[in-house]
Design a protein around this nucleic acid. Structure first.
Lengths: 154, 154
DNA sequence: CGGAAATAATCAGTGCCCTGATTAATTCGG
DNA sequence: CCGAATTAATCAGGGCACTGATTATTTCCG
């Protein structure tokens, strides 16, 4: 059988896109704080006091990965973890002052990086780019829980 | 400072897209062989006898990652590594019969999975999807080696 | 009230992904 | 010819991402 053309394989393209982004992030935004870590900081700026599981849900990280990311941010002193007095299973998360400062600094750099990253596309193409990726990702996400259909069953 | 909207951050979207793909691959293609591993098999079907570094270059994996992937495929008996008699630094890679059979089987399943993954998009949209991602990834790739401009310097 | 089911977090294990340092072999220049 | 630079591969180390199993706590129901 002939070899497949990977340039028409969405999974391969997705991986290459993420690698390219990782590289640019590393050089233009931060070598310490990663993009997923920034996503967590960003979520806690919008909604302080969320628990770990919910933060993971917001940014798209499973229970194990979010635990690791939170642990690193906590070790760096960017957020505090306190047990929920209402529910002893949960830990409530909140950024420290240092965490807020870091988020502010990285937000500016991230915006600059996105400009460079998207430079090859026109404004209209960027809109399409976001739309297409979001639709594909959302649809695949939806296949996860067959028990939770998007529309109520007849 | 207000929180950023991650749905307009290409890096975040790229990560979500890859996660969605990973999930679908796992359920529709294979739980043993991963997408990067398939990419390596695919490259060696097209060009048997390549060395490790070149395979990594073809599929977009750095020297460390390609070493790990090759090691796993070798352990599973899907490829053979022999030292290049012409250049003792290199190992030449070649699929085993089992490797070729595995590639053939997964090629069929991968095509089916891509259909499902891209189902939300029309044929024209798929073309645009590939084009936009490729352009962004290629451009970011090009920023890696500033010493190697795409056009000859004046 | 008290046991069963559900839920939040952790742990163990596997694999991808990168950088910087090291080792072995080849190539290049004097 | 021989030392210096280059190159292929490996190793150490850090981080992301998933699954399955376990632990602690809460909730649900008889």
């Amino acid at each position: 059988m002939a070899a497949a053309d990977l340039t028409t394989h969405p999974g391969h393209l997705a991986r290459r896109l993420q690698q390219a982004h990782y590289l640019l992030w590393n050089t233009m935004v931060s070598e310490e704080i990663t993009s997923p870590q920034f996503a967590v900081l960003n979520t806690l700026v919008a909604e302080p006091g969320l628990d770990q599981r919910t933060v993971g849900e917001r940014v798209g990280l499973d229970r194990s990965t979010i635990a690791e990311v939170i642990s690193r941010l906590s070790r760096r002193g960017l957020l505090d973890k306190v047990r929920d007095p209402q529910d002893g299973r949960r830990f409530l998360l909140r950024l420290t002052d240092e965490g807020v400062r870091t988020h502010r600094k990285l937000t500016v750099r991230t915006a600059r990086m996105n400009q460079v990253f998207l430079a090859p596309l026109t404004a209209e193409e960027r809109t399409v780019f976001f739309d297409l990726i979001r639709r594909v990702a959302d649809a695949a996400e939806g296949l996860r829980n067959p028990g939770e259909p998007l529309v109520a069953p007849g």
